[in-house]
Simulated assay, not measured.
Amino acid sequence: MSTLICGSIAFDSIMVFQDHFKNHILPEQIHILNVSFLVPEMRREFGGCAGNIAYNLKLLGGDPLIMATVGDDAGPYLERLDSLGLSRAHVTHVPGTYTAQAFITTDLDDNQITAFHPGAMVHSHLNKVEHSAGVTLGIVAPDGRDGMLEHSRQFAEAGIPFVFDPGQGLPMFNGEELLACLQLATYCTVNDYEARLLSERTGRSIEALANEVEALIVTRGSEGSEIYTGGRRIDIPCARAAALEDPTGCGDAYRAGLLYGIENGLDWDQTGRLASLMGALKIACRGGQNHAPSRDQIADAYRAAFGSTLW
């Protein structure tokens, strides 16, 4: 039972400015902004929604298949996929492009200035869901706009249940397009900000939108999450994290927990709690893919957090 994960593969270059942006950006001079920040600390992380989700699903014992597009500079990422035992059969190289990448500068107040280059991601529509075999579940995560629309339609045409996860790509779509994707999807997941935007753009309440899918999941950070299904709302508590190091990739870890629960027939309360736990395990480490608990350690952490067994 494979889960097809349509989304981005990206590099994240994270730099730390040992001062405060506010000391160097003068409000009265904002119309002629020209600043340079010395960043002695820098690290490069493997990221992207598809890469992060697949990494976490593999930790859980799932069988993720990544469907993504990469550029000429993807060699180190492809080698990493091989080392992790993650198939790259559906990772397409687009010649003459760069792999999607974010350049993030953080100051001492944790303010961030980010530049994002989509690169090969805008060609994600070149990948076709029907080219994969043995897939029983899917997810359409943030990716190129055309790819997200096409993959939603292709999953539905193939009769494969899938999660619609618009994420940071949500502003690319109008209300009609978002509603059409919801009606094609089996499940939908958004964070609380995205839920408000989804509601505004479609002109429908979250409760009404939940009627379009089997379950609509809204994450609320430290306040936990909510699962709307079967005309009711299930409140999921936030799992306590060992440390609060870096929120990058926490939403993707949560989604991996959702996919595992759906694929393995867990009830929604268990599925939501597992997803919450995966986010908590991630936030204790820097980067989207540097936490590495074993499956047994995940089960122990679930028992400690919620007082019940998972498997």
Results as ranks from 00 to 15, higher is better:
Arg233His: 03
Asn191Ala: 08
Pro166Cys: 09
Glu223Asp: 14
Glu157Ala: 14
Gly159Asp: 01
Asn191Ser: 09
Thr136Leu: 11
Ser124Val: 04
Ile236Phe: 01
Gly169Thr: 10
Arg196Asp: 15
Ser152Arg: 09
Ala243Lys: 05
Leu197Phe: 10
Glu207Cys: 07
Gly230Ser: 06
Arg201Ile: 02
Ala241Cys: 08
Gly203Lys: 06
Ala156Trp: 02
Thr229Ser: 15
Ala239Thr: 07
Ile234Thr: 07
Leu126Ser: 12
Gly167His: 03
Ala180Ile: 11
Ser124Ala: 12
Arg240Lys: 15
Tyr228Ala: 00
Asp235Cys: 10
Gly159Ile: 03
Glu157His: 08
Asp143Ala: 14
Ser225Thr: 00
Ala241Ser: 14
Leu197Ile: 12
Phe173Ala: 04
Arg233Gly: 03
His125Arg: 13
Leu216Pro: 00
Ser222Gly: 11
Met172Ile: 09
Val213Gly: 04
Glu207Ala: 14
Met172Arg: 14
Ser222Glu: 14
Ile160Arg: 10
Leu149Ala: 10
Cys188Ser: 11
Ala180Val: 12
His131Arg: 14
Ser222Lys: 13
Gly224Arg: 01
Arg201Thr: 08
Glu157Asn: 10
Glu194Cys: 04
Cys181Ala: 15
His123Cys: 10
Ala156Ile: 00
Arg204Glu: 07
Glu207Leu: 10
Phe173Thr: 03
Ala195Met: 11
Phe164Asn: 03
Pro161Asp: 12
Met172Leu: 15
Ser222Tyr: 09
Gly159His: 04
Ser225Leu: 01
Gly175Pro: 01
Arg153Gly: 04
Thr189Asp: 07
Ile227Thr: 08
Leu182Gln: 03
Lys128Trp: 06
Cys238Ala: 15
Arg196Asn: 13
Pro237Gln: 05
Gly175Ile: 03
Gln183His: 15
Ala215Phe: 05
His117Asn: 12
Arg240Ser: 14
Gly138Thr: 04
